[in-house]
């Protein structure tokens, strides 16, 4: 192990990790919004929109992110839609993640007993009020474990954005291996960088789940 190499290039990994975090974070936020809309449309059985939403979920869940990214980054410019790589990455993660988030939220919505809404209506709440103040909070709590799993999944999936030339952790590692042949050092830093990002998320998720469980029990 060449520790001098590691010390020299560790700062580059910090920069590359920011690219990974930037696209993951915005992708996850957008995926949550898409997921919420899709889950509501399917849950409320809005005609036509519901079929469109289900078709989207199937398309997004059954195709690889890399192909979605290549279509956005290399395919769309041919019809005059040229987006920067960062935008493609965020849209791709949102497109993929939206369906996973919607499934998680839908599971949460379905877990809320019908009597909750009925009781809220009996107490004189409007349907909108009962949804926002009674049903949704309980659904979100029930969905937390699945949502956390999706967040971890999407951060891991973001590793393919190196395929559209974004200088993330994967891209930097391949670059360093190609330039200097310090393969073991570059790979070690790659693994450590992902461990530093993913382990805290996983631990925070477990803590959050336990706390919410306690609140419900």
């Amino acid at each position: 192990m060449d520790w001098g190499f590691i010390a020299k290039y560790a700062p580059l990994y910090a920069v590359a990790a920011q690219v990974t975090l930037f696209v993951s974070l915005w992708g996850i936020v957008a995926a949550m919004l898409v997921g919420l809309v899709v889950a509501l449309v399917i849950h409320a059985k809005v005609p036509v929109m519901r079929q469109v939403a289900s078709a989207y979920v199937e398309l997004s869940r059954n195709t690889p992110l890399l192909v979605q990214l290549f279509f956005l980054y290399f395919g769309l410019p041919k019809v005059g839609v040229t987006l920067p790589a960062e935008a493609c990455a965020i849209i791709g993660i949102a497109f993929l993640g939206g369906s996973y988030m919607s499934e998680a939220l839908r599971g949460g919505l379905e877990s809320v007993a019908a009597v909750q809404e009925e009781s809220a209506l009996v107490l004189g709440m409007a349907p909108g009020q009962s949804f926002v103040h009674v049903v949704l909070p309980q659904a979100l709590v029930a969905a937390v474990p699945a949502l956390v799993a999706n967040v971890i999944f999407l951060i891991k999936e973001s590793s393919v954005v190196s395929g559209i030339a974004l200088a993330d952790l994967m891209y930097l590692t391949k670059d360093l291996i190609g330039l200097y042949y310090d393969t073991s050092e570059a790979l070690l830093m790659l693994v450590i960088a992902y461990a530093i990002i993913l382990i805290p998320v996983s631990v925070a998720g477990t803590v959050l789940e336990r706390r919410l469980d306690h609140g419900r029990g």
Partner: peptide
Amino acid sequence: RVMPQLVLLYVVFFGSATA
């Protein structure tokens, strides 16, 4: 399970030669 599959691919593909 915690590492992205692409990281594992890099570790095995590039790492096996050096190690």
